[in-house]
């Protein structure tokens, strides 16, 4: 009876052991904090570096000029306009197709092999490296369909194929979160399945779909690799007038300037990065705002 465990809890050795375990606990916690801190420090380091190097390059001329061989005259307007045109094409194609596919898969599709095939395709496309989409664009849009090289039209098409799965996945989640009772209610007063979907389900899911779409668009806006594949890396000094004109886009412009030997381009590159980051921040901010404003708990 004298060897009962309970008596040992007050031992000095046990006390030391507990103290050691508490120390380990604190160490572990500190490691976690350090991991978060290190990640955030890196982010801060990156942003501050870009800001310091690029802030001097930001000016009205920089925003209104297009690419030039002289660093002093180079600006981002041409690339910015190209980016906006490209994103417009992407959105015009990826949004309707993505939303319609999401509606079909969630609301209408029968469970069969075809539906499974569509689902597997979409989930895989969402994880395919972006450069592969560039190869697809090169082979299909340029070499097979003979669309104009280096144009926002082709860039937008390529990015649309890349963004579409993201919109479908976000759209399906938003549609899933619309409660079935709403569908029953509309069916109960004699709405057809199509009316239920377009009068009730789609409007209620729209904020969620839009949030996903904007995030997908922001990603497309920052994408570089697939656009290099379709020839968007030429020196283009005039802003595009339409979606079939040769054009540059902001991330590609950054890439091209980063290769310049002239040190003066370092400032230009960093300034262009600031412009790009501001656009991405605005888009993500809009997405977060939409999500918070329309988030609905059922």
């Amino acid at each position: 009876m004298s060897s009962r465990a309970a008596s040992r809890w007050t031992d000095g050795s046990m006390g030391k052991r507990v103290a050691k375990r508490y120390a380990a606990e604190r160490r572990f916690r500190l490691f976690g904090l350090a991991a978060v801190g290190l990640s955030l420090a890196f982010l801060a380091f990156l942003l501050i570096t870009m800001l310091m190097k690029g802030i001097g390059g930001l000016s009205l001329e920089f925003l209104s000029n297009s690419d030039a061989t002289e660093a002093a005259n180079a600006g981002v307007w041409g690339a910015l306009k190209g980016s906006l045109l490209t994103i417009l094409v992407t959105m015009a194609i990826a949004f309707p197709i993505g939303v319609l596919s999401a509606l079909y898969l969630e609301e209408f599709a029968p469970r069969n092999r075809w539906t499974d095939l569509i689902e597997v395709s979409i989930n895989n496309l969402a994880a395919v490296p972006s450069i592969i989409f560039g190869l697809l664009g090169l082979a299909v849009f340029l070499n097979f369909m003979h669309l104009p090289r280096s144009a926002p039209l082709v860039g937008g098409l390529t990015l649309a194929l890349m963004t579409m799965p993201v919109i479908v996945i976000a759209g399906r989640n938003a549609i899933k979160s619309v409660p079935p009772s709403i569908r029953d209610a509309a069916l109960g007063v004699g709405a057809s399945k199509m009316q239920v979907v377009f009068h009730h389900v789609l409007p209620l899911a729209l904020p969620g779909i839009l949030t996903g779409t904007i995030i997908g668009m922001a990603r497309a806006l920052g994408e570089t690799a697939p656009l290099l594949m379709i020839g968007m890396r030429a020196f283009i000094a005039t802003p595009p007038r339409g979606i079939t004109d040769p054009s540059s886009v902001l991330p590609v412009q950054i890439f091209l300037w980063s290769d310049e030997v002239d040190r003066a381009f370092v400032e230009k590159t960093s300034a262009a990065i600031i412009v790009l980051l501001i656009f991405m921040l605005l888009m993500n901010g809009l997405a977060i705002y939409l999500r918070n404003k329309f988030e609905r708990r059922w």
């Binding site: 990156l46 994408e223 991330p251 890439f255 980063s258 590159t269 960093s270 790009l276 980051l277």
Partner: peptide, 11 residues
């Protein structure tokens, strides 16, 4: 960190 364009990381 995940939203920063890769070209920015590259630079």
């Amino acid at each position: 960190l995940a939203g920063v364009p890769t070209v920015v990381y590259g630079y």
